[in-house]
Simulated scan of single mutants.
Amino acid sequence: MTQPIRVLLVDDQELIRVGFRMVLEAEPDITVVAEAADGRAAIAQTATLDPDLVLMDIRMPGLDGIAATQAIVRDHPRTRVLVLTTFDLDEYAFGAIRAGASGFLLKDAQRHEMIAAVRAVHRGDAALAPRITRMLLEHVTPQLGAGRPPVDPAETSRLADLTERERDVFLAIGRGLTNAEIAQTLYVGESTVKTHVGRVLAKLEARDRIHAVILAHRLGLVGDA
């Protein structure tokens, strides 16, 4: 039997944590291993419990979710971070991306969207729900060109390792398409797309799908939304 996804809940509002715990623990493949009310506690709990995924609020007193995400991604690369956001302020979303978040969940998401997001980020597949992906691209990608460092030659070199079909898939990921949409666009099955996505991420040394999106924009292969 597959081990359940071990989740750490991080939010400064207890009622929100209680609600999320009820939703998540109703699923047989998800278990909440602990809760934290601020960024420092999240870092400490991650070091102690080594969760598979941290559901991280951004705006918290003390150490915020962006700083906590950065520390967790740096020190615990196996743990993925799914950030809670309302997209009220672009800089919060952008900061979470730069910090290494693997996905985003809107705080007003429906129950099924939350469950799907947790599972997707955990497997590194479709890290963002379609509407969130497009909101992210619309709000954030115009900022990726501002003050960004020069493209690493190694990134360009890794891009050259992609086959023609893998490059097509990479460009589709960069445009924010889901696996189903890529399959429809390229006239192949979703299982084939999933295989290609895995190979693309591996060859590009991208942590997950959201960072492949960022890379596509940084390399100038996809226009800003």
Rank of each mutant, 00 (worst) to 15 (best):
M1Q: 14
I5N: 10
R6V: 11
D11V: 01
D12T: 06
D12M: 14
Q13R: 13
L15I: 15
L15Q: 06
G19T: 12
M22P: 00
V23K: 07
L24R: 03
L24D: 00
A26G: 05
P28H: 07
D29C: 02
V32L: 06
A34G: 01
A34V: 03
E35A: 15
A37D: 15
D38W: 12
G39I: 11
G39E: 02
G39S: 04
R40V: 09
A44K: 04
T46H: 09
T46S: 10
A47K: 15
T48M: 10
T48L: 09
L49F: 08
D50K: 15
D50E: 08
D52E: 01
L53I: 15
L53Q: 00
V54E: 00
L55R: 03
L55D: 03
M56L: 09
M56H: 02
D57S: 03
I58Y: 14
I58H: 04
I58S: 05
R59Y: 05
M60Q: 12
M60L: 14
G65K: 15
G65L: 00
A68G: 06
I72T: 09
I72G: 09
R74A: 15
R74P: 07
D75W: 10
H76S: 13
P77N: 07
P77R: 09
R78G: 14
V81A: 04
V83Q: 00
V83I: 03
T85A: 08
Y92A: 00
A93C: 13
A93D: 03
F94N: 01
G95D: 01
G95E: 11
A96H: 04
A96W: 01
A99Y: 07
A99T: 08
S102D: 14
S102I: 06
F104K: 03
L105V: 11
L106C: 11
D108M: 01
D108H: 14
A109G: 01
Q110T: 01
H112I: 04
H112V: 02
E113W: 05
I115D: 02
A116M: 04
A117L: 02
V118L: 05
R119D: 00
R119P: 06
R119W: 04
R119S: 10
V121Y: 01
H122R: 02
R123F: 10
R123M: 08
G124F: 09
D125I: 08
A129H: 06
T133D: 03
T133P: 07
T133Y: 02
R134F: 10
M135D: 07
L136N: 09
L136S: 07
H139E: 09
V140H: 02
A146D: 11
G147E: 05
R148E: 14
P149K: 04
V151S: 06
E155W: 13
T156K: 12
S157E: 14
R158H: 12
A160G: 10
A160E: 14
L162K: 13
L162D: 08
E164K: 03
E164N: 08
R167V: 09
D168I: 03
F170D: 01
L171Q: 11
L171H: 03
N179H: 11
N179F: 02
E181A: 07
Q184C: 00
L186R: 05
L186S: 02
Y187N: 13
G189I: 05
D208E: 08
D208L: 02
R209L: 04
I210W: 01
H211R: 11
H211V: 01
V213W: 07
I214R: 13
L215S: 12
A216R: 11
L219Y: 13
V222F: 06
G223K: 15
D224W: 14
